[in-house]
Design a protein around this nucleic acid. Sequence first.
DNA 1: GTGGTCTAGACCACA
DNA 2: GTGGTCTAGACCACC
Lengths: 142, 142, 142, 142
Amino acid sequence: MALWIQISAGSNEPIYMQIVSQISEAIAKGEISAGQKLPAMRKLAAELVINPNTVARAYSELEQAGLITTKTGSGTFVNDPKLRTIDAANINILAERMDSIVARGINLGINASDLAAMFRGRVDSFINKSQKREKENERDST
Amino acid sequence: MALWIQISAGSNEPIYMQIVSQISEAIAKGEISAGQKLPAMRKLAAELVINPNTVARAYSELEQAGLITTKTGSGTFVNDPKLRTIDAANINILAERMDSIVARGINLGINASDLAAMFRGRVDSFINKSQKREKENERDST
Amino acid sequence: MALWIQISAGSNEPIYMQIVSQISEAIAKGEISAGQKLPAMRKLAAELVINPNTVARAYSELEQAGLITTKTGSGTFVNDPKLRTIDAANINILAERMDSIVARGINLGINASDLAAMFRGRVDSFINKSQKREKENERDST
Amino acid sequence: MALWIQISAGSNEPIYMQIVSQISEAIAKGEISAGQKLPAMRKLAAELVINPNTVARAYSELEQAGLITTKTGSGTFVNDPKLRTIDAANINILAERMDSIVARGINLGINASDLAAMFRGRVDSFINKSQKREKENERDST
DNA sequence: GTGGTCTAGACCACA
DNA sequence: GTGGTCTAGACCACC
């Protein structure tokens, strides 16, 4: 399995947080199963072209959250996946961020339906990329 | 009109950003109309019990976003929305922020159409508030 | 490469603006090229014997102008000029600044064609410096 | 003679300074001659829709510079017009401001000849407005 | 090491 | 009264 982690340098979200989010959500969704070995920190750092300390911090946060365990000398492994639910708190945060974007768009003079259409477009392009990636992965593993 | 701005000290979002968001949303909703004077920096700072420099920074961001104009010695005023232009750079920034939200939503396990519907809902509630506000203004001025 | 920035304390122009002007002119002339790292805020502040916040403000203005990008923890870098877009708002601001100069020149008694010629001269000298710089860079990299 | 003073609210130059510049240059050019009465401060303030204190400050600066004299109860009068020359200092300031604009334009991606053409355009539009105003003045005085 | 945010308090320029 | 600038110094987050 190739690495699905994508970091965006321009984002406000710190790099280590992007890694934490993506790994923890992948675990929650079952894309990574219990007992599976995560990529070595240095390899991951090399692949993402970031500082190894940054990956170390991400793994450390994940371990503190109880999601993974590092065994010195052999690697880092996924713990028993606790089931996650879409909780109200996360939805609320998302809604607030959406409100902020809506206000910004309206202030820029974009009308309501254009704004919604634009968002729909971003969602679609996101889905398309994901599917493309999945196909590539299938082909790679064949 | 009382002051509607509410800041939460414990939040991850910096104080000046909370002010920026709330004022720009208020402008987008029409709660503050063009030409209206914003509270004086020092007064607002005193009311929110924060440093005047923090308010100054928020106002400065709003000015650079083209939403307000400061006239030294007389105050800070909301710009005419007609003066605002939709330029490519701003659209791109908006698109990036949308992408970030989409990724977050998908990571949370929300499917694509639910996400788009949710956004559409936020836009609609935004518009409804604006229209309600307009009606009240009409009634007040009658 | 030594530090070329020179600030004059007695000037009417605020210090942070002097820094903004000098850096943005240096970028326009190609004296600093895309991807290059600017001096760290605190180091520059120490060298110019001013407060780090003043440098921070200058860098912040440059970032909002789209000329540089700051990456927390690693530094501040000059953007790729190709990423910059010519939008209507910026053109309008430029036009206003030109109008201000024209009025000033006319008030000083300079006639219209002399004024235009003078401006043309400034543009040419600007371009010449850029080209000279490019040639030096070519020779250096040979 | 109508009032030729034009103030621009959006300018960085303070209003009182704009008045000082325009009156002093008008005196230098002989558009206002010695002994002539300047408009009353309150009338000028009303016409320009600004605070009377601002006009008072401008007149006060002009008096301190020895260009005008206020006689309480009768008005403000132009002193003997000292001849002014276009001095090097002013030209240098103008050149610096031009350089700043050139850098900004180049940074925005505008090429050299477009930039010069744009400036030429602003000069022309300035001249046209002046001539139009002169014609109106002629018609008014007929 | 880097930048980001905030405070406290000062002085100035402008209307 | 208004906003604009600058300093000194603190604490935090990130790489």
